[in-house]
Design a protein around this nucleic acid. Sequence first.
DNA 1: AAAAAAT
Length: 483
Amino acid sequence: MQKPAELTTRSESPADNDVPPGFEDVEVNEAAAKLSSVQVSEAAPDAGDEPDTSLKTDSLVERDTEVKKVLADDTLYTSAKTFEELGLSPELLQGLYIEMKFERPSKIQAETLPLILTPPHRSLIAQAHNGSGKTTCFTLAMLSRVDPALHAPQALCVCPTRELVIQNAAVLERLGKYSGITMTSTAAADYATTRRARINEQIVVGTHGKLRDWMSKRVLSVAAMKVLVFDEADEMLKQEGFLDDSVRMMRQLQAANKDLQILLFSATFNERVKTFAQKAVKDANQVFVPKEDLSLDVIKQYRVYCPTSADKVKVLRDMIFPQCERLGQTIIFVRTRETARDVHRLMESEGHKCTSIQGGMDHTARDRVIREFRDGTTKILISTDVLSRGFDVTQVTLVINLDLPVEKDVRIPAFETYLHRIGRSGRFGRKGVAFNLVTGDTERRVIDEIEAYFKHPIPEVPYDNEEEFVNVLRRAGLTEQEA
DNA sequence: AAAAAAT
């Protein structure tokens, strides 16, 4: 694993000082200087090979969490080893222990919760691995900061998809079960048409479109908002995506409350989005993970060269579907809505049971597909990138990229999307395998670039050798578990 | 011919 020497090297690497142009240089440089001084003093004992556990309260010295913290001021934060240390209410502790069955904070929770919950409640830009418990972080943050006596919306969580809204609302509901705190979501109700009164619920989860509608109709008041969370924040701040809506949302809430706490959470922040986020959210604390450390080792990744796209379907038919009863659950990602529909129809016509989901379907159909997949009725789900981020089904062990993740210009790899897609498997330390089906020179280049970007090998498996396929699945430990 | 998101 990681040698102490490498830790020291990393802590002094120039990457720590890569202040984005146009950003408030002074503050960041001060913070960076503070950061490196912390690291040097903590790295020093390693040189003598003398274990000094008393100093190792910071995750910076932990081997498997190479986080880089940049603090906005001198406030002293101690990472939390227990939930009790966080000063959470007894009701929230009950939610954690009884309802969620959590015992202690995960690493990202231990690091970020003190940053979020300690006055002056600074904003936070936080990067955390897929399945490392970041939903719990921002959910706890919202629940802790709400005033239960005030019956008005005080925390808002914005998500990129309806499915994520539903999922986050469910976590919120469970964690807040004993708190008496009220909540609603854009997927649960249509206030604009069904009721004229204002939203009284204390926490609101939603997608942009409907939130904007509610706010413009004054159904959702921003007057008492204290916390604004962006889940999948890099996606929410992407130039050609939700950027405009997200910025407008921030301005609107900040206009009502200049002390608004903004929390940006994602597993990925590329340099461009990171730079923008740092400019958009002033004086934020920051927690980042280098991209090389993000490609989770628990997920075995392979490439499968297929001569034609018909051979891709052949791989599904001959290798994947016959194994699916032994495999837990599988998500097959495709690039377009049309492909999702077509592949679904084709496989069904051949007698293979599966479902598909894409943004063109109506809400009730989407909800039904998700429900059936969650309860295990369906083993194989074909999906566009609507589910690439955040979707959490523990039983998913296999991810197939039938189309590689690419940008609008299909020659350009969508690196972040790749990481999010394969992260749908291997949830919470379970096993996971990802097969990338590759046809043609463009996709060949794309998978090579993805491999190089994350510095993580993606070895080849032949497309027409069933025995080899089964071996790969067995070696990964996927076929041991009987359905 | 990209997906995602309002009416």
